[in-house]
Amino acid sequence: MIAYLIKRIAIGLVTLAVASAVVFCVLEIVPGDPALLMLGMNAEPEALAALRDEMGLNQPVLLRYVDWVSGMMVGDFGRSYTYSSPVIDLIAERVLVSLPLALMALFLSTAIALPVGIFSAARRGKAADTMVMGAAQVGVAIPNFWFALLLIYLFAVWLRLVPAGGFPGWGAGVWPAVKALIMPAVALALPQAAILARVTRSAMLEVLGEDYIRTARAKGMPRRIVLWHHALRNALIPVLTILGLQFAFLLAGTIIIENVFYLPGLGRLVFQAITQRDLIVVEGVMMLLVATVVLVNILVDIGYAIVDPRLRTRR
């Protein structure tokens, strides 16, 4: 297990290294001069040259890459071209919106999907199963930003229960901030819940066909205990895989939802940075997200080992 973990972490680090090279190269070939961007079109040539020098833009590409990577390792992501503040500060500020949003959505989607999937599996082939899975089939097809528009119309325009968008900031108190995140979280969570419910159901069905389930039932164990204790634990592996994938998806997927609700999160930051050619911010956010995906994948693997003791010795 330890050897396996070390191998996983090593692969993760290599992935990060290659990813950083890819991100750097892609953004390197994009036309545009960051110094010109900071000073504006009418900048004095001397000032421009001085700034280019100060930003290290005159150095060879390889050196700038090494500088960028070694900076990130100690938490220095460089300075934004348009905000003139450190990228790490911008990210830290925006993570406080995106991370709670993604976590709320993940929690909601799990809280809906697990019971629904288990319920459906337990009633396989019955009317309730058909209906629930039909609804899930539709849910998978709903784009989250359209669902968000429907929610805005229903709860903000029509019922006037919540604001249609915007974020008051955590300084305005926990409840107003959470309230602003509820609708976006629901919009993100529901289509994801539909996917997760389908995965949970099929994983449960597979486990419910196993011999030890029949044995447990045959020795008189109540149906509910068999379902929740014996079956669920073993069905969790595919569910965990999807959960891991979904977290990364949710964190990046907030980009459209944040634009729908005008939330000042990572997604909006990176979207604005792209349109303003503030590439150093784009690079930083991309690397942060790739690192999150890599980390979550390792955590999911550790999760496998916790759920399934057989995996601790194998591999």
């Binding site: 997927g253 980009i255 459209i256 990176v270 997200l289 995906v293």
Partner: peptide, 12 residues
Amino acid sequence: VFAFPALLSAIM
């Protein structure tokens, strides 16, 4: 490639 958030990369 899987480690890159697909939608974000497509947006980029």
